[in-house]
Design a protein around this nucleic acid. Structure first.
Length: 813
RNA sequence: GCCCGGGUGGCGUAAUUGGUAGCCGCAGUCGACUUAAGAUCGACCGCCGUAAGGCAUGUGGGUUCGAGUCCCACCCCGGGCACCA
C-alpha cells in the first residue's frame, strides 16, 4: 500500500499526450489489455494473469524510455447488468457502478501500472456518443469494390442520378430501399430466439436444448422458436478480403490467425449457369470444382430459392409442403450434417448441363444453404460425399469424371489435369471465376434495453432520418421486464416510440470495436480522438487478452478500424500489431474456476497472505503465458521464497558495501539481464523468472556491490515492483525505480569463457570435460581422444570425429 | 469429418530450434543449526541395477555420426469450424 500510494502521488504512470511527449522526444508505445466486462462476482486469481503480463511489458518499456500508454476501462453494456436490474428493480447503471467499484478495488491491490486518468466506460454517454457517431458514418457509406474502400453514400446517389434514368422517378421510400442494399449499416431480416412463454427475445446463451431436442429458455424451460424480424446489420462482408490479407503482417499467434482465416472462409471457384429446358430461366451455381462439371448428374435448389416460385412445377403441392417444413426447422436442425438427407424432385422441369448438354433433374433440399454461394448447386455425386449420399438415396446416376487428378468422361477436356480444366471449362460454359466467403454480415441489434440506442428515427412515411444531436441518450424506463413483443423494453416507452426511434439497441461488441482509439484522447469533446494523438500513437503495439475473442471482438474491431481508416480517421490499417493470449488459470481440480464448483481462489486472499509481488511472480512463473495451467496454492511458496532471498541478499549487500563484485556473480548478472530483456519481449515470463532465481542463488554465496544489486532490482522490478522499490530507495536512490533506465548488459560479460562439453562415442555420452572457449577444434578433438574414461570405448581407430563448438565431441568408431 | 495446437519425472515445467534430456520451482528423503518446532543452509531426488552399465520425452517405424526436436503411420488430450458446394 505504501508504494502504491507513493506511485499515485507522484503520478509515475501518467502517460504524456503527444505534444509534451514529442518535446521530450519520447517514443510512443501502446500496451493494451482487453478491457473487462465488470461482472458482479468479482475476480478470481485467473483474471489478473493477462493484466500482470501486459504490466510487466509496459513497465519494461517505460524504463526503456518510452512514453507508454497503458490504460484500463470498462465494457459495461450487456445482459448481466440488465438482468441484475430486473431482479433488484434498480437502474442497470447502478449495477455497473457497484461492479466497477469492486473491480477497481481488486485490481488496485495488485500494483498494476495503469494511467487511470484515461479510464473509459462504454456506457458513459460521452463515450457512446461516438459509438453512435461511427454507426451513422457506417449508415452513410457504401463499399466501393473497385477502389476497395468505403465512400459516402452521396457519391452513389450522384452516380445513380447520372447513370440511371429511372432513379429520379423513384419515390423517397423506393430510393431508401435501393440504398439500403449498399449502406454499410443496413436494415434486413434476421432470425431471433423468440420465447412466447417469457414474452421476450432471448440471446443464444439464454437458450438451451430441452429433453426432446427442442429449444427452450434457460430460465423456466419455456419453448423457444426462431422467428424473423427486421434488424440492423453491418456489412462486414464488404471488408472480407482486407480482413483476410491484413492478417499476414500481424504478429499474432498463428493458430489465432488460422481461426480468423477459417471464419472468413475465402474460397475461389466458378459461377456458371444451367439453362432450364423450355424456359428463359437459368440456375446459377457456385462451385470450386468446375473440373467435375461433366459429372453433374442433377441439381439442388435451397428451399428458399427465389426461382422456385417462377417454375412450372407439376408436383407443386409436394414441393410446397417440403418448403414449409424446412421453414419451421431451426437453424440447428437444418445444418446438422449427420441427419438424413431429404428432398423433393421437381417434376416437369429439367436443367441442362451446359457442358454435356445432358438433361438433368432438379431437386429442392435443405442440405443446400440459401445464404451461401447462389443458394443452388450442381451435384456431382462421384466427387462429393454429400451429393453421393443424396444420389444413393434417390437412385441417381453417379459418374466418375476425375481419376488421379486427370479428367475422364469429360468430352474434349478428358486428359487435362483438374487444375488446367478449371479455367478452360469455366470459359467454355461462359462462366466466371469468383470468390466467395463463408463469413456473414453481422447482426447489429439486440432486443434489449442496456445498450447504445441506434441514432435514427423514422417518420410517418417510413423515411429514416439521422439524429442530429448526439448522444441519443437511453431514456429511463419504468420496467426492464419483457414487453410481450419481439422487441426490447424501449418499445414500452411511449415518448420513445412516438418519436420514431428504433427500439433495438446495439450489441455488446459495438463499444469494444473502437475503444482502443478513445484511450489515445479520452476526454476529447469534439472528435472521437484528436488527429494529433491518433497520428502520434498510431496503433496498439502489444495487445493482451483471451483467445476466445478471435471471431468476435478482434474481427469486429479490425473491421471498424479499416472503415475508420477509409474515412481518414484511423492512422493505420490494422489496430493490433502484436497480440498475446493468456492461458486460463484452472482450479486445482483441473476444472474452470467457478462459484458453481466452489473452487474459486480469490486474489485478495492470496495477496493478504503472500503479498502482491508473490502473486505476480508466481502467476508469471507457473508456466508459459499462453498455456492453461491449474492453480496450486502449494507451489506459490516458491515465488515467495525467491523474493525473500532477494531481500536477504540486499540486506547483506547494503551492509557490506563491497568494492567489487565477484567474477562469477558479475557474469551471471549480465547473462541474466540479457535473458530477461529478451524474454519479456517475447512474453516468456516463466523462463525470465527462472533465470533470476538462478542468479539469486549464485549471489547468495558471493560478493556483490550495491550498484550491481541495483541492476538486478531493475530487471526484477516489472515483476515485483513493490519490494524492488523498497530496496531501491533503501540502497540510496532518490527517485522511483520506475523512472530509472533499463539496464544494459555487456555482451562480453554475458559470454561464457569455459564450457563443459560432452564426449560421445557413437552418439552415446561417455565422458565430460571442461574446455576454454577459444580452444581450437584440433585441440579439443585431441583432448577428447586422450581422456582415460574414453579409451575403453574405443574399440578401433576413429572413423570420424564430429565437433560441435562448445557442445560436444562425437567419436565414431 | 476437416483445420490448428499439444503429449517430457510424483506435480508445474526447461531444453540455445538437429547436439550432454530433465534447468527452475513444488512435493519428498537425509543432514547442519535449534532444548524443540518453524525458518534458513547443505546434499540427494526419471526408471531398473550393489555397481559397471542399461533403459527412458504417447506408440511403432524411418532419416542421421547424433532425434524431445525432422519424415511416415497410429493412439490419446485440448481448441476452432462444421451439409459453406
Amino acid at each position: 500500500k505504501k508504494w502504491q500510494k507513493f506511485w499515485q502521488a507522484k503520478k509515475i504512470y501518467q502517460t504524456l499526450s503527444s505534444g509534451p511527449a514529442k518535446a521530450k522526444k519520447l517514443k510512443p508505445f501502446y500496451v493494451l489489455d482487453m478491457f473487462p466486462y465488470p461482472s458482479g462476482s468479482g475476480l478470481h486469481v485467473g483474471h489478473p494473469r493477462g493484466y500482470i503480463g501486459s504490466d510487466v511489458y509496459a513497465r519494461m518499456k517505460r524504463m526503456e524510455g518510452c512514453n507508454v500508454l497503458h490504460p484500463m476501462g470498462y465494457d459495461a453494456f450487456g445482459l448481466p447488468a440488465e438482468q441484475y436490474a430486473i431482479e433488484h428493480k434498480v437502474h442497470p447503471k447502478e449495477a455497473v457502478k457497484r461492479n466497477v467499484t469492486t473491480f477497481k478495488k481488486q485490481l488496485s491491490i495488485i500494483g498494476l501500472s495503469y494511467d487511470w486518468s484515461r479510464k473509459i466506460n462504454t456506457t458513459d454517454p460521452e463515450y457512446y456518443k461516438w459509438t453512435q457517431w461511427i454507426f451513422l458514418k457506417l449508415y452513410n457509406h457504401y463499399y466501393d469494390s473497385e477502389q476497395k474502400k468505403a465512400r459516402p453514400i452521396k457519391d452513389l446517389i450522384k452516380k445513380f442520378e447520372k447513370e440511371n434514368h429511372n432513379w429520379k422517378k423513384l419515390s423517397a421510400l423506393e430510393k431508401q430501399e435501393v440504398l439500403m442494399k449498399y449502406r454499410l449499416a443496413y436494415e434486413g431480416e434476421a432470425e431471433v430466439n423468440w420465447c412466447p412463454g417469457l414474452g421476450t427475445v432471448l440471446a443464444n446463451d439464454e437458450v438451451t436444448e430441452g429433453q426432446d431436442g427442442h429449444l427452450v429458455s434457460e430460465r423456466g424451460g419455456h419453448p423457444v422458436e426462431k422467428i424473423k424480424i427486421k434488424q440492423w446489420f453491418l456489412r462486414i462482408t464488404a471488408y472480407a478480403d482486407r480482413l483476410l490479407s491484413g492478417l499476414e503482417e500481424l504478429k499474432w499467434p498463428s493458430h489465432l490467425k488460422e481461426i480468423e482465416k477459417n471464419w472468413i472462409g475465402r474460397s475461389e471457384g466458378s459461377e456458371i449457369e444451367f439453362p432450364i429446358k423450355n424456359s428463359e430461366e437459368k440456375i446459377k451455381v457456385f462451385t470450386t470444382r468446375v473440373d467435375t462439371l461433366f459429372g453433374a448428374t442433377y441439381m439442388v435448389l435451397a428451399p428458399e430459392h427465389a426461382l422456385i416460385s417462377k417454375l412450372k412445377i407439376e408436383n407443386w403441392k409436394e414441393a410446397e409442403e417440403y418448403i414449409n417444413k424446412a421453414r419451421h426447422k431451426t437453424a440447428k436442425e437444418r445444418t446438422n450434417a449427420e441427419k438424413e438427407k431429404t428432398g423433393v424432385a421437381l417434376k416437369g422441369v429439367k436443367a441442362i448441363n451446359p457442358a454435356s448438354g445432358e438433361e438433368i433433374l432438379i431437386f429442392i433440399s435443405d442440405y443446400v444453404l440459401a445464404d451461401y454461394g447462389t443458394g443452388a448447386i450442381m451435384a456431382v455425386p462421384a466427387h462429393d460425399s454429400r451429393d453421393y449420399i443424396f444420389a444413393k438415396k434417390f437412385g441417381l446416376s453417379i459418374r466418375k469424371v476425375v481419376e488421379q487428378g486427370t479428367l475422364i468422361n469429360s468430352g474434349k477436356f478428358s486428359g487435362l489435369s483438374s487444375e488446367e480444366a478449371r479455367k478452360k471449362i469455366t470459359e467454355f460454359v461462359n462462366g466466371k471465376i469468383v470468390i466467395k466467403y463463408k463469413m456473414r454480415d453481422a447482426v447489429f441489434a439486440r432486443q434489449r434495453y442496456w445498450g447504445e440506442p441506434i441514432p435514427l428515427w423514422r417518420d410517418r412515411e417510413g423515411i429514416l432520418h439521422e439524429v442530429e444531436k448526439l448522444p441519443l441518450k437511453l431514456p429511463n424506463v419504468k420496467s426492464y421486464e419483457p414487453t410481450g413483443k419481439a422487441e426490447g423494453p424501449l418499445a414500452g416507452v411511449r415518448a420513445w416510440t412516438e418519436k420514431g426511434f428504433e427500439t433495438n439497441t446495439m450489441p455488446g461488441w459495438a463499444g469494444s470495436s473502437w475503444y482502443f482509439l478513445r484511450y489515445m484522447d479520452p476526454k476529447n469533446k469534439k472528435e472521437l480522438a484528436g488527429k494529433k494523438e491518433l497520428e502520434y500513437w498510431k496503433a496498439v503495439d502489444v495487445y493482451v487478452g483471451g483467445a476466445e475473442h478471435a471471431t468476435g471482438h478482434l474481427l469486429y474491431a479490425r473491421f471498424w478500424h479499416k472503415f475508420l481508416r477509409d474515412l481518414g480517421i484511423a492512422p493505420a490499417e490494422e489496430p493490433f500489431l502484436e497480440l498475446h493470449n493468456q492461458g486460463l488459470i484452472l482450479a486445482a481440480d483441473g476444472r474452470k474456476m467457478s462459484k458453481r464448483w466452489g473452487n474459486v481462489v480469490n486474489p485478495d486472499d492470496i495477496i493478504a497472505t503472500y503479498g502482491a509481488d508473490t502473486l505476480r511472480v508466481y502467476e508469471m512463473f507457473m508456466g508459459p503465458f499462453t498455456d492453461s495451467i491449474a492453480w496450486s496454492t502449494e507451489s506459490i511458496i516458491g515465488a515467495r521464497r525467491f523474493l525473500e532471498r532477494v531481500w536477504r541478499i540486499a540486506e547483506k549487500v547494503i551492509k557490506e558495501k563491497a568494492k567489487e563484485t565477484g567474477e562469477t556473480e558479475k557474469r551471471i548478472l549480465h547473462k541474466t539481464i540479457k535473458k530477461i530483456s529478451n524474454d519479456i519481449k517475447s512474453f516468456n515470463f516463466n523462463t525470465a523468472i527462472s533465470a533470476m532465481m538462478i542468479c539469486a542463488s549464485v549471489w547468495e554465496k558471493g560478493t556483490v556491490t550495491i550498484s550491481d544489486l541495483k541492476l538486478l532490482l531493475q530487471i526484477l522490478s516489472p515483476f515485483a515492483p513493490h519490494i524492488t522499490e523498497e530496496i531501491w530507495l533503501a540502497a540510496g536512490e532518490k527517485k522511483s525505480i520506475n523512472l530509472s533506465a533499463w539496464p544494459k548488459w555487456s555482451e562480453e560479460l554475458a559470454k561464457d569463457t569455459v564450457f563443459k562439453i560432452a564426449i560421445q562415442v557413437n552418439g552415446k555420452v561417455r565422458d565430460e570435460m571442461e574446455i576454454a572457449a577459444d580452444l581450437s577444434e584440433e585441440e579439443v578433438k585431441k583432448l577428447a581422444l586422450s581422456q582415460e574414461a574414453i579409451s575403453k570405448w574405443l574399440t578401433g581407430p576413429a572413423k570420424k570425429i564430429i565437433y560441435v563448438k562448445n557442445k560436444l565431441v562425437n567419436i565414431v568408431v
